[in-house]
């Protein structure tokens, strides 16, 4: 098989076979296309309650984001402006990774504490906040896969090199004097003033 070509031959006795049950506990990821979504379901309503209890203290009751904790809504139509805002609603290309991320990483201080049902419910609520699910909706694997995110086509392949490979050596400015366009002293004094080695 092509993929295996040039693979080193296995060395006997190094590494232990892993059981399906062992894999199941760790294989918690959900792919963009929904592969990996578990059975179960949850409603926007249930999600709202959980969100207020476990999420709103950082993300705000409506996902607007408190202080500098991330906002989960907004920004649609902003991506090609000079104030782009990247959120679930405006930027994420696929819906299943919202479930994936909430289940693996949220609530921030107690990750991996949500049941699948809770994760479905919270995903439903976050999508609802982004006007991608009606208030009375219930979410399961099939439903989640079927949601088309607004920015689905927003990602393009890597496009570098995209800058010229020029290396002029002399009189490159052709007589133009150097003009400073921005001086950091407007913000900070030169030295280490931008940051700290003690918690602020």
């Amino acid at each position: 098989p092509a993929a295996s070509e040039g693979l080193p031959r296995p060395i006997a006795g190094i590494g232990r076979p892993v059981t399906a049950q062992e894999i199941a506990g760790w294989d918690v990821d959900v792919r963009g296309d929904g592969e990996g979504l578990p059975p179960g379901r949850g409603s926007v309503k249930e999600g709202e309650e959980l969100f207020v209890q476990q999420c709103a203290s950082c993300h705000g009751d409506f996902g607007e984001g408190l202080e500098r904790w991330p906002a989960l809504i907004g920004g649609r139509g902003s991506l090609n402006t000079d104030q782009p805002r990247r959120t679930v609603g405006s930027f994420w290309p696929y819906a299943p990774p919202v479930f994936d991320y909430i289940r693996r990483a949220m609530p921030y201080a107690t990750p991996m504490s949500l049941s699948n049902e809770q994760a479905y419910a919270l995903t439903a609520y976050v999508l609802h906040l982004n006007e991608l699910l009606p208030e009375d909706a219930e979410l399961d694997a099939e439903k989640l896969k079927s949601i088309r995110m607004p920015n689905r086509d927003g990602f393009v392949p890597e496009a570098r090199p995209d800058t010229p490979d020029e290396a002029c050596m002399s009189s490159c400015r052709q007589g133009r004097p150097v003009a400073v366009t921005m001086d950091s002293r407007r913000f900070v004094q030169p030295g280490s003033g931008s940051g700290f080695s003690e918690p602020q």
Partner: peptide, 30 residues
């Protein structure tokens, strides 16, 4: 985990993609 396509997880869509002036973002700019 070995698969047959990328996962498009949060850290390779929401973050670590490069937004261009036209509003589209370059992905997998490794």
């Amino acid at each position: 985990e070995v698969g047959d396509r990328p996962w498009y997880h949060r850290e390779e869509t929401r973050h670590y993609t490069d937004l261009m002036p036209d509003g589209r973002a370059r992905k997998f700019t490794f």
